[in-house]
Structure formats: C-alpha cells, structure tokens
Write a protein that binds this DNA or RNA. Structure first.
Length: 274
DNA sequence: TCTGGGGTCCTAGGACCC
DNA sequence: TCTGGGGTCCTAGGACCC
C-alpha cells in the first residue's frame, strides 16, 4: 500500500524535515519533489490509517505544516486520492472505488494528462476519466501512440504497476534563463551561454558527473523554440570542451529574431568513479 | 494565464553498419 | 553491383510534471 503526500507552501528547510519524518516510518520512500513523496507501507503491520495519523502529527510538530495524504494500492491512485481533499486531507482509494470515485472526474485530473491531451480528448468527445475508460485500447494507441495510448488505457482504470523508486541518478543537468527583454545582440547571447555553461559544469563537477551530449535551447520572441545537440566522442567535465560544443550548436541556429530564452543541457551522463 | 526553471519520457527520421 | 532488413546511435521537437 502506498501513500502520497501533498503539502502546501513547503520550503526547502521544511522539506528536509518532512522527508526525515517520513524516513522514520519506512526506508521505502520515493522523493517526488520538494513537497511530495510516496511511501510504501505494505510491509508495516499497523493499520494504515493509524500510521497516517501518527505521521500527520509528527510533521505538524516538526514543521508546523499540514499535509494531504492519499492511501491507495498504487502510486497513481494514491496521488489522485491525495488531491481529493485539499488542505490537511486524508483520502483512501481502493480498486473497488475506481468506478464511483475516479470515473466521474474530469480527464485533467488523471496524472499525465496535460492541456494538450485534454484538448485532444475533448475534441473526440471524452471529458471524464470514465469516458476515457470506455475507449478501446486500439483506439487510444492509434490516437496517442503505443506508449502513451497504453498508459491512458491503464490509468483510466486505476491500473499502475510502476515501482517505488528510492534512488535514481540524474539523466541530465541544465540551466536556462529568460532575458528581461528580448535580445538581438549576439555578444549578450554568447556571454549568457558561456555563463550558463559554467554553472552546468560546476553542477556536474560537484555531483561527479561527466557528459557526452550538450544541447542548447533558444526561444525567440515569437515563442518558437529550437534545440541543437552535439554528442562528443568521450565523456568529459572540462568546461572548455563543453563550452565549445555549446557554441558549435549555437552556430547552427540562425539568430534572425530577438531571443527571449537561452539554455544549455548536459545529458548522456556518466558518474565519475573515483 | 501571453508563458519561470529544472527535469523526464516519447516519437520520428536520418545516418551508418552488418 | 544492387537491394533490402534490422539494429543502434544521434538529433529535434513535443508533452508533461513539480
């Protein structure tokens, strides 16, 4: 059985406290952002509701803040449940509740459905999770592709086999910035790219990663967004080499419009073993 | 929402190799 | 010499999340 915590107005200091309280309950915790976490308490003997009361009390003591909790057999349902009673709530959602609790909800409440998918679904007459569940897998896969179509089919039924992830390595490290005013001056763009690259490299070095793929992102004043990537032959954390790759990417973009945002990302990461 | 920043995953197409 | 299929890597862009 898994929990999800949603916790309002969290600050990083409080976030630490929050996570440490959870870890006193079980090591099976998945960090899901500054103010959210999943807890797998299926191995614990206590009745889940009594554990929840204990956790709420301790979090209140340590941080002075309240949290909303969802209890469910999987992460998807736990997250949706936590959102059902907003401040300081506690909601249990079981497989048997899917039809009466999940299906009446608007599709946007389903994790993974954003504004684009919402609009697309409404175009084909689907407004609730129940209506989504009434669609065939074939239709959804045809419309949304194999992976996402499958996901929607399962998720609309409350099915989620995703495991709890207690530890993971970053896939990429990036920095981006939006200019106060859209810029045309190449010098300013270049200087900013160099600064962002420096920050990315510092971050990589601090956490012991090397990269092979450098991607830059440019957003113009009309919101057109371009990316250019360069993969180099060997993993590196050398600033000069990474900056060269970033500038090689920049050269491939025609800067004929004012630039609103510039960013740089290092991916294809490898942990340095020392 | 006239739109901030740091992430993840997916898809499609092209290049290249066997 | 020509053709084709499959696998892998890389690139670019899109959608979503907190």
């Amino acid at each position: 059985m898994l929990f999800f915590f949603l916790w309002y107005e969290a600050y990083s200091a409080a976030s630490q406290q929050f996570k440490s309280v959870l870890l006193t309950i079980t090591p099976f915790m998945e960090d899901a952002g500054i103010d959210e976490a999943f807890l797998d308490i299926s191995e614990l003997l206590d009745a889940s509701e009594s554990i929840v009361v204990r956790i709420k009390t301790r979090i209140k003591e340590k941080t002075g803040l309240t949290c909303s909790i969802g209890i469910a057999p999987n992460k998807l349902l736990a997250k949706i449940a936590s959102d059902m009673q907003k401040p300081d709530g506690l909601t249990t959602l079981n497989e048997g509740d899917v039809e009466c609790q999940l299906w009446p909800l608007p599709i946007r409440k389903l994790y993974g459905v954003g504004p684009k998918t919402e609009a697309h679904l409404k175009d084909i007459g689907i407004e609730t999770i129940g209506q989504l569940a009434a669609s065939s897998a074939e239709k959804l896969i045809e419309t949304f592709g194999h992976s996402y179509g499958h996901y929607l089919y399962d998720a609309s039924r409350g099915i989620d086999d995703s495991p709890l992830v207690t530890h993971w390595e970053p896939k990429s490290i990036s920095r981006e910035t939006t200019f106060q005013e859209d810029v045309k001056n190449w010098q300013v763009i270049a200087r900013t790219l160099a600064e962002l690259t420096k920050e990315v490299v510092a971050d990589m070095q601090e956490h012991g990663y090397q990269t092979r793929t450098v991607t830059i992102k440019i957003r113009f004043s009309d919101f057109q967004t371009l990316t250019r990537a360069k993969t180099i032959s060997d993993y590196t954390d050398a600033e000069e080499e990474i900056r060269k790759a970033a500038f090689a990417c920049l050269k491939r973009i025609d800067l004929n419009k004012r630039v609103r945002l510039i960013g740089v990302r290092a991916s294809n990461l490898e942990k340095v073993t020392s």
